[in-house]
Design a protein around this nucleic acid. Structure first.
Lengths: 149, 149
DNA sequence: ACGACACATGCAACAAGGTTGCAACAAAGA
DNA sequence: TCTTTGTTGCAACCTTGTTGCATGTGTCGT
């Protein structure tokens, strides 16, 4: 079920709400991230949006997304950035934990698990925290155990 | 104060203990990491060891270090890997938190701060946890405040 | 509805970090 | 000392992300 113009208006509103231009690339990325179950890398976004947006355009859209506060950027353990939407403006988007599956490579937001506040040594001031667990996700876990040949 | 052969024997023993060959590159990297106050990136290691080891050699030494259990690899928030030595075999090297200074780029091991165990959703199994705080370290903090012009 | 302007896009080139293949070399044991 | 097997150096390559610049387009004022 591809985009209908009516559905796209949701994204357009969100874009305008942060004082930016509603462009096809931005709308498409927003829509994609909204329906994503896990944080996506630039590569994954490029492949999902087979619409021929330029690589650089996507990088810029993603940068804009973070700058404007509509999304965040997290780093998985493998030198790539991943992007997910921030929660809608009403909810305060507390920092949450992430889970990266070694098997399928997907990254999940563990919204339920609050990131424990760090106790830093004297003189240190923390701004942001990344809390990322690596392991196997539920699906890969069952795949592997049922595949024990 | 450069390496003395006598001091190097410590490193050689550690290398032999994991069943590997004691080569100049490995000894040098081990020595460097032992004296490092923070986790070092490949680049930093290459510059500190101005001894002309090949880039690739260092990458391979670092990979070996992690595989053999003598060191770990962590990712700072900026797409680069950093390496530090594992604690000596007697101590169980519990996972610890890291701190990356946005200002000077250094990465510190916060050995005192235990990484809280994650509560994962059903079906997920975690193997490793990364807990990294970003902010300003004590030195940069004072530099900035005394530099307010 | 139209035009202007600022911002967004596409292209090409670049940069940094890391990996691979392969021939030459050297540490460890016989 | 000799052999073997693991290590090194080199060159080339890949991936991820960035920059400069000319062209295109969304938005606003009219």
């Amino acid at each position: 079920m591809p985009a209908s113009p009516a559905e796209a208006s949701t994204q357009i509103d969100r874009i305008h709400a942060v004082g930016a231009r509603a462009t096809p690339a931005r709308i498409a990325v927003l829509r994609l991230l909204e329906s994503a179950e896990s944080a996506l890398s630039h590569r994954e976004i490029e492949e999902a949006l087979a619409t021929g947006f330029d690589r650089v355009t996507l990088y810029r859209v993603l940068d804009w997304l973070v700058e404007s506060g509509l999304g965040h950027r997290i780093t998985d353990g493998e030198r790539v950035f991943r992007f997910s939407l921030a929660a809608p403006a009403n909810a305060s988007h507390a920092e949450h934990a992430h889970f990266r599956c070694e098997c399928c490579g997907k990254m999940f937001c563990l919204a339920d698990i609050p990131v424990p506040a760090p106790a830093l040594p004297a003189g240190f001031s923390g701004k942001a925290v990344e809390y990322c667990v690596t392991g196997q996700c539920a699906r890969c876990e069952t795949d592997v155990s049922s595949d024990e040949s």
